[in-house]
Every structure is written in C-alpha cells, then in structure tokens.
Design a protein around this nucleic acid. Structure first.
Length: 558
RNA sequence: GGACCUGUAGCCUAGCCUGGAUAAGGCGACAGCCUUCUAAGCUGUAGAUCCGGGGUUCGAAUCCCCGCAGGUCCGCCA
C-alpha cells in the first residue's frame, strides 16, 4: 500500500508547491486514497482540487481519479494492488512486514513481580503488554533484551516472613505455595493493623534480612523459591520468555553505593536520619532514597539497576513497563540519575499503563481483594473447554486440549491488550467468557476457517494467478487490509502500542469473514479458485504473523 | 493544595499525537441468514448535546484556556 501512497504524493506534488497529505478516505465512495486541497492553492480549495485533478493522468498504479469538492479522490488499479501485495507476501511469507535490523539495542523490563505476593490480573496486563512489545519491536528490527526484575526483598517480604514464622510455620500446602504466601502477606497486613506493636518484630526481620542473617536467609530462599515456582509456571503457560533476570537483593549494595555518591556530590542530603533528594524545584517533591534505619527502598535499587543496564548490556534505550501509579517514582528516578550526571537518563522511558480494577475499586494485595491470575485463567479455560467439547465431541482429547488452551490464551491476552495503555480496564468476569465480537477467539476463529478451507481445497496454493480476477468489493477490501500491515507494525512499534495491532487483527478478521461469506473459494471456477485460494493464504500468513506479535496462538482448528 | 491519566449511543471501545468529507467497531435490543468452504460467523434496523463553557481556524471529537466528574500519585510501601 505504501507504493500507492507514494505514487499519489508524487503525482500531486508535480502540480503544487504545497505539502501533499495523502489520506485514507472515511467511506467507500470517496475512493481508496485522497488528497485534501485546502492548502495546496490560494483560491477556493474545490477549484484547486479540480485544477490539479485535470492535470493528472492515470498511471499503472492509479486507475482513475476525480475531484470531489475540496478533495482529489484516487482509485487504485485493483490488478496492480493485488499484484504488489500478493507477490510481496508470497516472497516474504512470515517476514512480510518485518523491518531491517536496527543498530540500537533496547531493553524492555516488564513483569517485575513481587515474591511473597499473589500474581493477579493486574500483573497479567503487564506481562501481556511487555511481551507483545518485545515481539513487535523485534519484528520492527530492534535488537531487544527482554528483562524481568524480581522484587524479592522489601517490606512486603519481611511482613510475609514474619507472619509465616509467627503464625504459619509448618502449615504450608503441597502446591501453589507462592499464592499461599500471598494470602499470608494479606494476613500479616491485617495483624499489623490490629496491633501496631508487631511492627518492631517486622522491622527486626527486615534489618536481619538486609544484613544477611543466615537463619533468615534460609527461610527467605525457601519461600522465595515457592513464589518463583508459581511465576515460572505462569510464564510458561503464557509463552513468555525473558533474556535477563535481575533480583532486588543483588542490587541493595550497589544501590547504597550510588546513594553514597549522591551524598558526596551533594545531590542527596540526610534529613531526619533518612537520605533524601529534594526535587521540589522540579515539582517532583522529595524522594527518600535510603530509610532512616539504613535499609534500602525500591528507588535505591532502581538507581543501581538503571546504571547496570547501560553499562553491562550496552543498551541504547531502557524501557520500563510499569503501571501508571508509579509515574512519580520514575520521574524522580530519572531526574536523580540526571542530577547524578548519568547521561543516559534521557534514554530511559517509563511506559506506563493504567490499572486493572474491579467494579468495587482498586485491587490491593495488602487487603487481599484481588483476582488472582490462576482464578481468572481457570475460569476462562473451563469455559473454553465447555465450548470446544460442545462443538467438537468427535475430537481426540489432545485436539480438545490444544484448542482449549489456545482459545483461553487468546481470550485472556486479547482482553488485556485491545485497549489503549492509558485506559483503566474494569475487570468483568462475565465478559471474560464471551468469545463473540471483538475478542481473541473471534480473530482465532477467522484463522481456523482459513486453515479449514486450505485443508479441504483439492489443490495447493498456486504462486501464479490471474490478478484481474479479483472483482468484488470484499476481495478488494481484504487486499487493502493485508496491504497496510507493514505500516501498522511500524507505527505500533514506534508508539509502543500493541493495542493498535489488536485493532488491526480485528479489521483483518472482519475483512476476511466478509470475504468468506460472500466469495465462494473452493466452489469457484478454476482461475478464480486459484486466485481466491492464493488471497486466502496470504491473509492467513499475515493474520498468523499479527497474532504471534500479540503472543496469541493461531488456532488451526476450533 | 499540587501532578499525571481518563470522559465519545443503554454498556465497552477506536479515532485525538499529525484539525478536513456522512464520528468507526463491538456488546446488548430488534429483524433476517445454516440441504452450499466451521453460525465462536454474516446482513439489516434503531441508538451519539463526542463531559460543559470559552478561544484559535475557512473548518475542532482532535489544538489552546477555564471548569466539572472519575481514577491514580504526592518523605522513610512497592
């Protein structure tokens, strides 16, 4: 499609000195591409449009054009469009839309779960977003390091271990021990609220942990492992992979060194025992970077980690996929790094996304009002399984299991990715088990239909087809949609917006379903059958690539 | 008190960066389509003061200002 846009731009530019903008018109009747002429001439824009239009002759790519009010509407040559798009997809296959290798290495840090807490659907949004971004940016040519940062120390850990040792030791369950720790954490918070005197005991545990008391370290390692087992199982199920792992506890000492340097550079000062950086003149309040008792905070470690990423991994850009509620933390962090003299502070980006909330309000691990990933996944999987069994009782157990898993993943991931990062998702359990309309399964279903036609086709897909045979509106729409895929990916990568890929996948599935409904494929006559089969296969290739960029498994059958 | 984000049909969203033609999808409602490639689909109908008020512009859902409503954050949680 890019070729056509360039062509139109070139054609119009010959007859005006103004900056030519090429748009995709809002409705079918206004052609395939349009150029608004409001600023291309001095007089009435409609006259300008008319004057320019009469000077332009059709070309190989442009079938005809007409001035319509202040616009020039271009109608592309359908045969040329089919030839351009289909031959490119045929040649490139699953690399269609991929950009050439870029030099600058990017690190995308995401997930960052807290050990000793449950993994809930808010964490799921983060993982889906981070994973899709990694895939999209890689496809767009960036060398990407997918990084995870495990928060395995801090107040929540100390609280949990305190409650475990005091109330629950020896009572651990056989499985899902990480989630069980999460419930203990919630319990610990309650007990502390009931009786603030416990704080002394918790603080003591925190201090002993940070000074590597062997007895506590042993408990810590054991319990941390329980959480990690849960997390790794979830990542495996979701099909996400990390290249680098950072652990909070390994960053405490390096973090404290940075704090010392900051004090020496007079960036940080000691105030009421705590080490702080006054950022009021930047309208960023005051950042406490070391507590009065000398123990570290989240930001203490993040200071060290930011440096380590650039120094050790030679990255050029550092992206943090973290919820919007931590915007202040990152603004402070990046500002302190800048004051510290760390030039790459400008190459750090907080990619913020809004919360997943319940109808009742915000989820909080402390209060225990969370929807755990495991609960959500089970609900969606159960529903998916029921649907599969109802539709395909004749399938083997393996076939059923595969489809169930793929559809559940598609439903969950799509629901987490399809809206803008800045928008709050209000979790609705009812909606999670609706697979109609704008959902993952809708897109996967289109894919399954494509596979089914190919399977039933008496012949394989031919490379050489008669491009003039595409005559229907549906075929043309489908060609245009697959044609714009490379543009969509490029833009999604630049703007860190996987949701635009979701929208594209919906458009594509919709255009295909329309085509499927109105254009018989296998039953068409020889030449047309070959052409439509070829078009269908090209669509399948693009849909597969697009789904995989979202981390959603394409389903061969469902 | 300050900062950031959000506000588009009954409901959920896209469009906003980069102003342009008749504001686009989905759910739900209503009316249709399976002896024909998978009906998790398709077609049609009804449904919108684009939160409000100013401003800029030939032209504003989109840009600017002032409000309102909701969410989030603001010194020793993460």
């Amino acid at each position: 499609m890019r070729v056509f846009i360039e062509e139109v731009k070139k054609l119009v530019s010959k007859h005006t000195s103004g900056d030519v903008i090429v748009e995709i018109p809002p409705v079918f009747e206004f052609g395939d591409l349009a150029v608004p002429c409001f600023r291309l001439g001095k007089g009435n824009p409609a006259t300008t449009a008319h004057d320019i239009a009469t000077l332009i002759k059709p070309t190989k790519l442009i079938h005809h054009l007409e001035a319509k009010g202040p616009y020039i509407n271009f109608y592309v040559n359908k045969e040329a469009l089919a030839r351009e798009v289909l031959s490119e997809i045929w040649k490139q296959n699953h690399n269609y839309g991929r950009s050439g290798k870029k030099a600058d290495q990017v690190m995308i840090e995401y997930s960052q779960p807290n050990t000793h807490k449950g993994f809930h659907i808010g964490h799921l949004r983060n993982v889906c977003l981070g994973d899709a971004l990694v895939r999209i940016m890689r496809f767009n040519g960036h060398p990407v390091i997918a990084a995870n940062y495990i928060n395995d120390t801090g107040a929540h850990v100390s609280k949990c271990i305190w409650a475990y040792l005091t109330f629950f030791k020896g009572k651990e369950p056989f499985e899902n021990k990480g989630e069980w720790l999460g419930s203990i954490y919630t319990e610990a918070t309650k007990k502390l609220e009931e009786n603030p005197d416990h704080k002394v005991a918790v603080d003591s545990i925190h201090a002993r942990l940070e000074s590597n008391d062997p007895e506590l370290i042993e408990i810590w390692e054991l319990t941390k492992e329980w959480s990690m087992d849960d997390f790794l199982a979830i990542y495996k199920e979701l099909g996400v992979h990390f290249d680098s792992w950072f652990f909070d506890n390994e960053l405490i000492e390096p973090g404290k060194s940075v704090v010392n340097e900051l004090v020496q550079k007079n960036v940080a000062v000691v105030d009421a025992g705590a080490t702080i950086v006054d950022l009021k003149k930047y309208n960023l309040g005051v950042a406490v970077i070391l507590k009065a008792d000398g123990t570290s905070l989240y930001i203490t470690k993040d200071l060290a980690l930011a440096k380590q990423k650039f120094d050790q991994f030679k990255i050029k850009k550092s992206v943090y996929v973290v919820a919007a509620e931590q915007s202040m933390h990152f603004k402070q962090l990046f500002k302190i790094l800048e004051l510290y003299g760390f030039n790459q502070a400008k190459d750090c980006k907080h990619l913020s996304y809004e919360l997943v909330m319940l109808k009742e309000g915000k989820m909080s691990s402390r209060e225990g009002n969370v929807v755990l990933y495991s609960e959500f996944a089970k609900q969606v999987r159960d529903y998916s399984r029921t649907e599969v069994e109802q539709r395909h009782p004749e399938w083997s157990d393996e076939e059923k299991a595969t489809a169930t898993h793929q559809i559940a993943l598609g439903a969950m991931k799509f629901s987490m990715l399809y809206q803008d990062n800045n928008k709050v998702i209000v979790f609705d359990p009812q909606k999670a088990t609706e697979f109609d309309g704008e959902t993952g399964p809708y897109c996967q279903y289109a894919y399954a239909r494509m596979c089914s036609v190919l399977k039933k086709s008496p012949e394989s897909v031919a490379e050489k087809i008669e491009y003039t045979l595409f005559q229907t509106e549906q075929e043309f729409e489908l060609l245009k949609t697959i044609g714009k895929f490379p543009v969509v990916i490029e833009s999604a990568s630049k703007s860190y917006a996987p949701n635009t890929v979701c929208r594209y996948v919906l458009d594509l599935a919709q255009a295909f379903n329309d085509f499927y409904e109105h254009c018989p494929i296998i039953k068409a006559e020889d030449g047309l059958r070959h052409a439509r089969l070829h078009l269908l296969n090209a669509t399948r290739v693009v849909l597969k690539t697009a789904l995989e960029l979202l981390g959603i498994p394409p389903t061969d059958q469902m």
